[in-house]
Amino acid sequence: MTAHPSEPSPRPAPSGELRASHDDREAVVEQLRDAAAEGRIDLDELDTRLEQALKSKTHAELAVLTADLPRLHSSESRPPLVLKGGMHGASRGPGRWEVPGHVVARGGMGGVKVDFTRVQCRLTEVAVEAYGEMAGVTIVIPDAWAADTSGMDPGVGGFTDKTTPDRLPGTPLIRLTGSAGMAGVVIRHPSRWERRKLRSNPAH
């Protein structure tokens, strides 16, 4: 019986030759616009690079357009978002907002709610510190996201994790730390009422 030579297995493409997605192109467009706003490139050059970015098919083609620009405004390097409940409470979301790599929520007297359900986040992880204090902290994450809550101190008020471990590829992991304090901290997926609102008004 004659053995047939095995076919060579396909070799993975170098990372620079990988096909770029719409999100990849949009991230470069955002970086170019930031650079123009800071005076790093003039408007003519911005127009040229934006046109090239929208036509780019690979990561390598996109990388050339930003190789001479610093990445000062990436989400990882943004300053932490600090929310303090104060007397009247504080919230972020459920509208679209820019997610930094680090969020601090202090319940204060009025409580804090952090709602990630409508955000577009390219980070692989988001560090969230939550402190229940006199009023609680509620964190709402999309169904596709997951949370690591092993660093939470239940405090006096108690800590409640109602999230599921199911996490879709490409979505962030919320790494939650802090203390539930006197009023408690809750992390969960959207409630039935919130889901109904998301379905009825998905664009805002």
Rank of each mutant, 00 (worst) to 15 (best):
residue 2 T to L: 15
residue 2 T to S: 12
residue 4 H to S: 12
residue 9 S to N: 09
residue 9 S to H: 06
residue 10 P to D: 06
residue 10 P to R: 07
residue 11 R to A: 15
residue 13 A to Q: 15
residue 17 E to H: 14
residue 19 R to K: 14
residue 20 A to E: 06
residue 20 A to T: 09
residue 21 S to F: 10
residue 27 A to L: 07
residue 27 A to K: 04
residue 28 V to H: 04
residue 30 E to T: 14
residue 30 E to K: 09
residue 30 E to F: 02
residue 32 L to N: 08
residue 34 D to S: 11
residue 35 A to I: 04
residue 36 A to Y: 09
residue 36 A to N: 13
residue 37 A to W: 09
residue 38 E to A: 11
residue 38 E to R: 10
residue 39 G to M: 10
residue 41 I to L: 14
residue 42 D to T: 06
residue 44 D to T: 15
residue 45 E to Q: 14
residue 46 L to T: 01
residue 47 D to L: 09
residue 51 E to I: 11
residue 51 E to S: 15
residue 52 Q to F: 09
residue 53 A to T: 05
residue 53 A to I: 00
residue 56 S to L: 02
residue 57 K to M: 02
residue 58 T to R: 07
residue 58 T to Q: 00
residue 59 H to R: 11
residue 59 H to Y: 08
residue 63 A to F: 04
residue 65 L to D: 03
residue 67 A to H: 13
residue 69 L to N: 02
residue 71 R to P: 06
residue 72 L to Q: 00
residue 72 L to S: 07
residue 72 L to H: 06
residue 72 L to Y: 04
residue 73 H to E: 05
residue 74 S to A: 08
residue 75 S to D: 14
residue 75 S to Q: 14
residue 78 R to M: 10
residue 78 R to G: 00
residue 78 R to V: 03
residue 79 P to S: 04
residue 80 P to L: 13
residue 80 P to G: 08
residue 82 V to F: 11
residue 83 L to R: 00
residue 90 A to H: 02
residue 94 P to Y: 02
residue 98 E to Y: 10
residue 99 V to Y: 03
residue 100 P to N: 03
residue 101 G to Q: 00
residue 103 V to E: 02
residue 104 V to Y: 02
residue 104 V to M: 11
residue 104 V to L: 12
residue 105 A to Q: 04
residue 105 A to C: 15
residue 105 A to K: 05
residue 108 G to M: 01
residue 109 M to I: 01
residue 109 M to F: 08
residue 112 V to Y: 01
residue 113 K to S: 10
residue 115 D to G: 11
residue 119 V to S: 01
residue 120 Q to F: 03
residue 121 C to R: 00
residue 121 C to P: 11
residue 123 L to E: 07
residue 123 L to K: 09
residue 124 T to N: 12
residue 125 E to K: 15
residue 128 V to G: 00
residue 130 A to Y: 05
residue 131 Y to V: 00
residue 131 Y to D: 07
residue 133 E to K: 05
residue 133 E to Q: 15
residue 134 M to F: 13
residue 136 G to W: 03
residue 137 V to E: 00
residue 138 T to C: 08
residue 139 I to Q: 02
residue 141 I to Q: 03
residue 141 I to T: 01
residue 142 P to W: 06
residue 146 A to F: 08
residue 146 A to N: 06
residue 147 A to R: 01
residue 147 A to F: 02
residue 147 A to W: 00
residue 149 T to C: 15
residue 149 T to V: 12
residue 149 T to W: 02
residue 150 S to A: 15
residue 150 S to T: 15
residue 151 G to R: 12
residue 151 G to W: 04
residue 153 D to A: 09
residue 155 G to W: 02
residue 156 V to T: 12
residue 157 G to P: 04
residue 157 G to T: 00
residue 160 T to I: 15
residue 161 D to A: 09
residue 161 D to N: 12
residue 163 T to K: 08
residue 165 P to Y: 13
residue 165 P to N: 09
residue 166 D to L: 13
residue 166 D to H: 14
residue 167 R to N: 08
residue 167 R to V: 06
residue 167 R to L: 07
residue 169 P to R: 02
residue 172 P to T: 03
residue 173 L to P: 10
residue 173 L to Y: 11
residue 173 L to C: 09
residue 174 I to V: 13
residue 178 G to F: 05
residue 180 A to F: 01
residue 181 G to P: 01
residue 182 M to T: 04
residue 184 G to M: 06
residue 190 P to L: 10
residue 193 W to V: 14
residue 194 E to T: 07
residue 194 E to R: 05
residue 197 K to I: 13
residue 199 R to C: 10
residue 202 P to W: 01
residue 202 P to K: 01
residue 204 H to S: 15
